[in-house]
Design a protein around this nucleic acid. Structure first.
Length: 225
DNA sequence: AATCAGGTCAACCGCGCGTCC
DNA sequence: TGGACGCGCGGTTGACCTGAT
């Protein structure tokens, strides 16, 4: 059918934002709120499309944003939630106040994935990786079929029931996810979660008390039901 | 000091979903 | 009921940074 572009591409700026643009956007939203992203750039006097403004605001300018490394607790929450929710970065981000989906996605792709692999965990399905005597088969369709991996996990599921049931039992969302027991394997190996491999977080870098995990998770999981 | 490779992250793009008419 | 529209999401890109050679 041919979708209309989200904005008139002609005459609109792209690329990195300048400090001036940041100020305009920030000031406008702080004083007027963002009623309608599509109309906002014009009202704020910006040559950007609404989408770009929304992204800039949510990922960078929002006053409640935290910057810098994710703490170890935050990382654990991310890993745990990823095991349950998959690549739903916005959902995951909603459990980490001050963090954005983009930030978490980036952090996952650049840090956590690598860390999990080093720990012998497949970051896609949170299964233990097969012994790497040869190069792993190309993707093994794991991405496409997480359930296949889940079935392999039935043993470890039982081992972790006590830990898991409180959270897992509340998940009833969606076809695949409610069956997603991949997190069980995560739990199984997460006892070995190697602190040594995580960046050292200095006390002044920790901006939030480190115990939001379970309550947030439970809240959201209840929302999912 | 220069070059290269790999890593990081802000921003863009396209699609799907929900809402409205 | 179905098309148009706006928003949000996830994947991808590309510029910049940093460390190795």
């Amino acid at each position: 059918m041919g979708r209309k572009p989200c904005c008139q591409k002609v005459g609109l700026k792209k690329g990195a934002w300048t400090a001036e643009e940041d100020n305009k956007l920030k000031n406008f939203i702080l004083t007027n709120g963002h009623c309608c992203w599509r109309a906002l750039p014009k009202l704020a006097g910006l040559l950007r499309c609404g989408k770009s403004c929304r992204l800039r605001w949510t990922n960078y300018l929002r006053p409640d944003l935290k910057r810098g490394f994710l703490s170890e607790d935050e990382e654990k929450i991310v890993i745990d939630l990823h095991a349950k929710l998959g690549n739903r970065w916005s959902k995951i981000a909603s459990h980490l106040p001050g963090r954005t989906d983009n930030e978490i996605k980036n952090h996952w792709n650049t840090h956590i994935k690598k860390k999990l692999r080093n720990m012998g965990i497949d970051p896609l399905v949170h299964n233990p990786l097969p012994p790497t005597t040869t190069t792993p088969p190309p993707l093994q369709e794991q991405t496409q079929n997480p359930v296949a991996g889940q079935e392999l996990l039935s043993d470890s599921v039982d081992q972790n029931k006590e830990t898991e049931t409180s959270m897992q039992s509340t998940i009833t969302e969606g076809k695949d996810e409610d069956k997603n027991m991949a997190s069980s394997s995560l739990m199984e190996v997460s006892n070995e979660f190697c602190i040594d491999e995580t960046p050292v977080i200095l006390p002044h870098e920790i901006l939030v008390p480190s115990s939001p995990s379970s309550s947030y998770i439970l809240e959201d999981l209840q929302c999912l039901t």
